[in-house]
């Protein structure tokens, strides 16, 4: 499996946030995207996930067979996609049913993340760190080869981060791909780093019709 970004440029709110991005990522490889606030880290992840159409360039994911790119990715963004009135297990069971390609059972996933006892509690009762762990459970209940994680360590305590790094290790060892936008350094051996810096603001040209 091969993820390639070819001369990629993306817009956010009508403004180019990065241009000419060319990266290729193979099986078992990790890419850490760093950069200042507003450098376009989240925009890049959304573009790879297929939530955003790039302004220029191409994104290709080779070796996926019949499946389209959105069907191969896990995208964990800022919004956790959890319903407060449903229990943690119900939330994960729903995610597994919608995403398909079933992995382990919700209860097992929660146990693996160290919050097995929270399976029957409504997510609304949980703290930010616990909700984050429930959200990470999605990575386990549905198996997908490309993980796109936006600030994955947010709200996690030391143990939470340790569990997360274990997950990432196992995923890469199985030949998965990882793109993570992060401020804090992630201890992933052999991970490549991509530093985004915004292009100088171009003067608006008469041909530019955003």
């Amino acid at each position: 499996m091969q993820l390639s970004l070819d001369h990629l440029a993306c817009r956010r709110a009508g403004r180019l946030v990065f241009t000419g991005l060319t990266v290729s990522l193979g099986a078992g490889e990790a890419l850490l995207v760093t950069g200042r606030n507003g450098a376009g880290k989240s925009t890049l992840l959304a573009a790879i996930a297929g939530l955003l159409r790039p302004a220029e360039g191409r994104i290709t994911l080779a070796g996926t067979g019949e499946r389209s790119r959105p069907e191969c990715v896990h995208h964990l963004g800022h919004r956790d996609g959890l319903k407060p009135s449903l229990t943690a297990a119900e939330n994960l069971a729903f995610a597994a049913a919608v995403l398909g390609s079933a992995g382990i059972a919700p209860g097992q996933a929660l146990a693996k993340l160290g919050i097995g006892a929270a399976a029957g509690l409504p997510v609304g009762y949980l703290s930010a760190g616990q909700r984050r762990r429930v959200m990470l459970g999605r990575l386990l209940v549905a198996r997908r080869p490309v993980w796109l994680l936006d600030e994955p360590t947010t709200a996690l305590d030391r143990e939470g981060r340790a569990v997360l790094f274990d997950l990432l290790d196992a995923h890469l060892a199985e030949g998965g791909l990882l793109v993570a936008a992060t401020h804090a350094p992630l201890p992933i051996p052999g991970a490549r780093e991509l530093s985004l810096s915004p292009p100088p603001p171009a003067p608006p040209s008469p041909d530019d019709l955003p």
Partner: peptide, 19 residues
Amino acid sequence: EEDGSLDLLRFSAAPLEVL
């Protein structure tokens, strides 16, 4: 859309029309 579960539907293997 507000809590992000709509993105989950967008990544589904099922067509969006069905959802």
